[in-house]
Design a protein around this nucleic acid. Structure first.
Length: 111
DNA sequence: AAGGTGACTGTCA
DNA sequence: CTGACAGCCACCT
C-alpha cells in the first residue's frame, strides 16, 4: 500500500459524524493535490475491505457525485442519519458541513 | 505488464 | 448559471 493510499484512508477515518469532505480536499491533505480521482478509486476498493465512511466524501460542488442512484440514495440516507441536510438533488451545504483536516502535511501553500 | 477507466477538479466559453 | 475539455494518477483487467 502506498503512503498516499494510507493517508487517504487515515484522513477519511478522521471525518467526524455530521461532517463531509471533498475528494480534492482529501487528495490535498493526503499529499497529492491533483489526485482527487485516486481518492475515489481508493474509496471504492478500500470501502469494500475496510469500513470507511465513504458516504462522508462528496465532490467539490457539494453534491453526491455517485452515478449509481441506489448507492447515491444510500449515501444520502447515511448523511441525513448523521444530521447532514441533503437536498433532494443530493446537494449539501459545504459551508456548514465541510470538515477541515487537522493533520495536513506541511504543504506550504503560498499564494 | 500495459492500457483503460473513473463516486474529480479547475478553467474557459 | 451550464457544458465541454483536459489534466490527473492509482486501481482494475
Amino acid at each position: 500500500m502506498k503512503p498516499f493510499t494510507a493517508n487517504v484512508i487515515a484522513i477519511i477515518k478522521q471525518i467526524p459524524e455530521g461532517r463531509v469532505m471533498t475528494y480534492g480536499q482529501i487528495a490535498r491533505a493526503a499529499g497529492s493535490p491533483r489526485a482527487a480521482r485516486q481518492v475515489v478509486r481508493i474509496l471504492h476498493s478500500m470501502s469494500k475491505k475496510h469500513r470507511l465512511p465513504w458516504h462522508r466524501v462528496i465532490n467539490a460542488k457539494g453534491q453526491v457525485a455517485i452515478k449509481d442512484e441506489v448507492t447515491a440514495m444510500e449515501q444520502k440516507w447515511q448523511l441525513e442519519a448523521e444530521g447532514v441536510e441533503v437536498s433532494q438533488k443530493g446537494e449539501i451545504d459545504l459551508v456548514r458541513y465541510q470538515f477541515h483536516v487537522l493533520s495536513e502535511p506541511d504543504n506550504n501553500i503560498t499564494l
